[in-house]
Design a protein around this nucleic acid. Structure first.
Length: 445
DNA sequence: GTTCTAGAAC
DNA sequence: GTTCTAGAAC
């Protein structure tokens, strides 16, 4: 990130962390090291070097709470601190399930610009896969329209999103750096070029209906080997598997999950046999990149299809899977179905138990893959509080309560919304939850 | 992956 | 009484 770890330390002082949820506000602020285990609901409180007090806030702040309001930065283990502060500052990030926060933070990249440099040009053709939304980490950005200065944007603010979110063909204004500017930018798909190339070779029409789900595969041998067996049978031309297969390419096969944990729940299998995550080596990298692109293509295709609730999608691999053969889960974010029966089911589809394919690829590239403590993750999963991924409510280990209808997804967002727009929309929830928490701390509740 | 069950925990 | 956990069998 443009704002490196070192710079981040200089900018903010870590003063502690707590855990907060709307229903149980356990936010004792103990001085402590960064919590590495929980990515979902740990809030890190950081003190900005120069606290800014919101002028609109009428309540006078005592010296002891001055740090609360402007400060508090919500950090997930996988969300970089700069992203987290950006999410907290920016009002568009108000309604976010955790998985999509990760997805977005994952794909943000650093961009820096020199004084006077034109970042976006009014009327420029908007191209998917090129940078389309920027968040200012450092510096200021001028917005110009038809020769007139419109406004000056500052740290934490965003620009460039109009064309993307409204699906406009052209940029709507010119953005120019005032002084040195550092941004975090969403470039769209991480492998935009590969994705585009893949899109040209794949045919969406060959994708079969997403509902109904064909149910469990019948398995003659050990259940843990069912996926490998399915690949064997598909490759042997076994027609009885046809209802289970949603799409296939030379390299990958997409099938229904036999016990869907969401309205739509697919598994993407590479035909190359990879027994488990820990069997991956750098030699698999090219295949994994193509797999990532294929999943991106699939996500484009499935959006808005019949039977798909407009709640967004998540995708990734289980850090501790039960079945052999590498498989990528691609599913709707309702996380609700008759097969969703216990705490493990639920937790396993939220970070850190669901790992993005991109992070697997990065780990392989960085060579840190072997350090993963899978056993510890499994233990954590058994103890962790169940927090609704939609409203954030904490149900402890009460799975039955979590699954009550009132806490399942409402299908109230359109299906015509782009994945990125959806991620943004969802991020608002995080900011709201966080700000409510900060408000409570400030009020001494 | 599931199902079933006994026993612990609430 | 109900709900959750953990282990065995599939």
């Amino acid at each position: 990130m443009g704002c490196s770890g070192e710079e981040e330390k200089r900018d903010r002082e870590l003063i502690g962390f707590g855990t907060a949820t709307p229903t149980s506000r356990r936010y004792s602020l103990e001085l402590s090291s960064l919590p590495q285990t929980d990515v979902s609901r740990e809030y890190m409180l950081m003190l900005p070097r120069q606290p800014k007090i919101d002028p609109k806030s009428s309540a006078p702040l005592s010296s002891s709470d001055e740090w609360i309001e402007p400060l508090a930065v919500l950090v997930f283990t996988l969300v970089l601190a700069a992203d987290a502060s950006m999410f907290a500052i920016n009002p568009i990030f108000q309604d976010a399930p955790i998985p999509l926060v990760h997805a977005l933070s994952d794909r943000l990249v650093d961009k820096t610009f020199k004084d006077g440099e034109v970042i976006l040009q009014d009327g420029e053709v908007f191209q998917t896969g090129k940078s389309f939304v920027y968040f200012i980490v450092k510096g200021e950005v001028e917005i110009w329209k038809e020769g007139n200065f419109i406004m000056l944007l500052q740290q934490g603010e965003k620009f460039g999103e109009l064309a993307a979110l409204r699906k406009l063909p052209f940029r709507q204004a010119t953005a120019k750096a005032k002084g040195a500017v550092a941004c975090r930018a969403d470039m769209g798909a991480a492998n935009a070029d590969a994705d585009a190339a893949l899109s040209r070779t794949l045919d969406g029409a060959s994708l079969k209906a997403l509902v109904p789900n064909a149910g469990p595969l019948n398995c003659r041998g050990k259940w843990t080997l069912v996926l490998e067996q399915a690949l064997d049978r598909i490759e042997a031309g076994d027609k009885t598997l046809d209802p289970h297969v949603v799409h296939q390419t030379e390299e990958f096969v997409t099938i229904h999950d036999g016990y869907p944990k969401a309205a739509v729940h697919l598994l993407v299998l590479p035909r190359a046999r990879v027994a488990a995550l820990e069997k991956l080596t750098r030699e698999h990298l090219p295949m994994l990149m193509r797999l990532s692109s294929y999943v991106a293509w699939l996500l484009q295709q499935v959006e808005g299809r019949p039977g798909v609730p407009g709640v967004g999608w998540i995708h990734g691999v289980h850090s501790v899977p039960s079945l052999k053969q590498l498989h990528v889960h691609v599913m709707t974010l309702d996380l609700n179905s008759p097969c969703m029966k216990n705490a493990k089911h639920f937790s396993s589809f939220l970070p850190p138990f669901l790992v993005s394919l991109d992070s697997v690829i990065r780990a392989l590239q960085d060579g840190v893959f072997a350090d993963r403590s899978l056993k510890k993750l499994e233990e954590d999963m058994k103890k962790r509080s169940l927090c609704c991924h939609r409203c954030g409510a904490d149900f402890g280990r009460g799975f039955a309560q979590l699954k009550r209808p009132a806490h399942t997804w409402r299908e109230d967002s359109g299906t015509d919304i782009s994945r990125t727009a959806q991620a943004f929309e969802c991020l608002r929830h995080v900011a709201r939850t966080f700000l409510a928490f900060a408000e409570d701390v400030r009020a001494g509740r």
